[in-house]
Write a protein that binds this DNA or RNA. Structure first.
Lengths: 204, 204
DNA sequence: CACCTGATGTCACACCATGACATCGGGGCC
DNA sequence: GGCCCCGATGTCATGGTGTGACATCAGGTG
């Protein structure tokens, strides 16, 4: 195929993004997308397993890169820091900031696509947990570190994109981590009735 | 309608559960479910917005009860404890332990239903966050407390159902909370390069 | 009895998704 | 050059999902 010609997958993604912006996700049929990309619907489904997936082609690349970052982290690093560092170290601009913004806006505007985004995030979390376990982290700790780390990052990221001041993303994650710590009861004797903890089943 | 006769919705749910057990979710059509329940597919879609939802009718009741538990918690309670207490205080056996077990087994065996379960949990999380905010908790804290609390509960619950010893669910959540605390860097000076924190944007 | 109302059935239709097979065009090999 | 192979795409047929419009039927009520 000549290099100057976009592949069908790219044309389909572009067409879908445009149509979703123009008339919404639900009111756009696969036929319309395929027509605009000058292919048949059969070709659409050869490239994407279903209609929603057309906006999530990058997802695989992102997930793989993040998991690799976790596996590559220095051995001594604490699991929560491993997760947060992987997330903050990733280049989220991807294939162009503007395209990324449009894609995100379309997803945010459509419940169906939001669901798919949630699934994708969950897939990433699952692989994070496995990656941490491969680093020797025990399962319960891996689950907690992953979910907490992703939520901490989400909190920081939200403040980062909407923040007026050019705060550093790392500093924001530190602040979010600190906030999370304030939510946990103090360690030796908490506000709860000072029952001494029964043997901590999950501690190493 | 005579009292001794089950309503269509109940018959549909029962039929669907049986068929999903017998031949799987994907290989069961709405037509089959409707036939076994002695109604038409049109009636199926009057009671359930889509095929998956047939196993999640209880979801609304559960979500409502949990949110109410959060709103009813004593005013002084810390947000994380509010979430955990709401979850541990709920009667998860619902409409019969055996039915609940079958339903859960079917969901666990089908990716499509697992996705829906994830969505439902997310819906619950969103309402938890709103409920906490109504209690005066700031948004970032509400998000972190909700996600952390749900994950802590999930960790404890998993150990509870698979545990041989009859450990108390409350003790298990305490243990999981303690584990989460060990994952966070120590508060005043952590293992990270001792950069003094810039003003903590999220602290009260 | 006539009427109303809620639940259900009937019919038609659009869309999503996939299997089976045909076609077409370019690159390599003799 | 001519042939063949193969990957990408098109064509056709089909099954399942989900919804709107309207008909029907039963029970309760005046």
């Amino acid at each position: 195929m000549p290099r100057w010609e976009q592949g069908s997958a790219d044309r389909l993604t572009k067409a879908a993004l445009e149509l979703f912006e123009e008339q919404g996700f639900e009111d756009t049929s696969v036929v319309e997308i395929a027509d605009r990309a000058r292919v048949t619907t059969r070709t659409f489904f050869r490239y994407f397993p279903d209609k929603r997936e057309v906006l999530f082609a990058e997802s695989d690349r992102i997930r793989t890169a993040l998991v690799q970052a976790i596996l590559d982290a220095p051995e001594v690093t604490e699991p929560l820091q491993v997760v947060i560092t992987a997330l903050t170290g990733f280049d989220w601009t991807g294939p162009g900031r503007e395209l990324q913004r449009r894609r995100h806006a379309v997803i945010a505007a459509n419940p169906g696509l939001l669901e798919r985004e949630l699934i994708k995030q969950n897939d990433i979390a699952i692989e994070f947990i496995h990656a941490l376990q491969r680093r020797g982290v025990e399962e319960a700790a891996a689950r907690l570190a992953t979910r907490a780390g992703m939520q901490v990052f989400a909190t920081a990221y939200a403040h980062w994109v909407e923040g007026d001041d050019g705060a550093d993303l790392r500093e924001l994650t530190d602040a979010a981590t600190a906030l999370l710590r304030t939510l946990l009861p103090a360690d030796p004797s908490g506000p709860s009735p000072a029952e001494p903890r029964s043997r901590a089943r999950y501690l190493p």
